[in-house]
Simulated scan of single mutants.
Amino acid sequence: MRAKTIDRIATYVLTGIAVLIIAVLVGLLGFILTNGWHKLTFDFITSPPDLLKAGGGVGPQLFNSLYLLVLTMLISLPLGLGAGIYMAEYAPNNRITQSIRLCIEVLSSLPSIVVGLFGLLVFVTMTGWGYSLMSGALALTVFNLPLLVRISEDAIRNVPKSQKEASFALGISKWRTVVTVLLPAALPGIVTGAILASGRVFGEAAALLFTAGMSSPDLIFHDFNLDSPTSPLNPFRPAETLAVHIWKVNTEGLTPDARDVADGAAAILVLAVLLFNLGARWFGTWLFKKMTSVTR
């Protein structure tokens, strides 16, 4: 009876913790969306900001955030996945790999402001690119690599050994086993890591203040010349993201409706992260079914 009572109490406690976490999340989302819902109009989402009068939007900032996300993931995903495969399947268990794991842990604990200063020194100053999307993407790659490496390594290591041994028994090479057996089975964990890294890209502001900048040129969205300073696809132009814009509007206080703009931008940022997470999970599930012929 005592064991049953303890088990029942533990169940209630853990259930209460889960409910508390959900309640905090729902309350936070509800507060942000309630305050910013009135600003979610087509003009606000598509028009550029106006710091001298009320009524500006966040169109270029939203595009910059999405474009920066694409650039960052194009750089960090192959590097993180490749490093995770190496650490899980190819790296010997010696002092060198232990040092690599220690470096990854230290790198993951660096404050974002430190990563931003490193990006300012290396990607902005030493390369001569100045404040640009590429500088911000490389700084965020440094920020996200430890997370992607550890999650990719853990996801591959958690694949049952019987699957790998069965592949070897059929005479399949190690690389083919990694590509056709381990990666498809580890795909849900890798997708989760990519989603977490993407969320950090959307919400990061401190590192981008020193790398991508706090201003954007007047973009011409029908200009597809990558060398043009007004082209939205130019990766070497300065770009103010949505998170940086929220910080800038609140701190400078130049816009008459600064609070409304910040609330609306925060609501758009939350909705963008939510929609991206749902879309990424749907794509990961679809790809997992295509690669493994397993229904989940």
Rank of each mutant, 00 (worst) to 15 (best):
K161D: 14
A262Q: 06
A18P: 05
V249T: 15
A155S: 15
A166D: 01
G82Y: 03
L133P: 05
D223G: 00
W286N: 12
I85H: 05
A266P: 03
F210H: 07
T127K: 04
G116Y: 00
W247Y: 14
A243S: 15
I6P: 03
G84M: 05
L25K: 01
W129Q: 07
K161M: 12
A166N: 11
L52W: 11
G203E: 00
L208Q: 06
V114I: 15
V106M: 10
V178Y: 05
V244W: 06
L71N: 10
S215V: 14
A3K: 14
I151L: 09
L107N: 07
L147Q: 10
L110C: 00
G80T: 06
F42T: 10
I17M: 12
L287C: 11
I96L: 15
G55W: 07
R2N: 10
R101Y: 11
N250Y: 05
N35R: 14
L51G: 12
L66V: 14
G27S: 13
L79D: 12
E105M: 08
L117K: 01
N277H: 06
N94I: 04
I6V: 14
T11C: 06
T141F: 05
G128Q: 08
A262W: 05
S173V: 04
L148I: 12
A239T: 04
D154L: 04
S132W: 10
G279D: 05
G84L: 04
P232G: 06
F118A: 00
D7I: 13
L52N: 12
V159G: 07
G253A: 11
G203A: 00
L182A: 04
L28Y: 14
L278F: 06
V26R: 08
I104M: 07
L107Y: 03
S215L: 12
T285P: 00
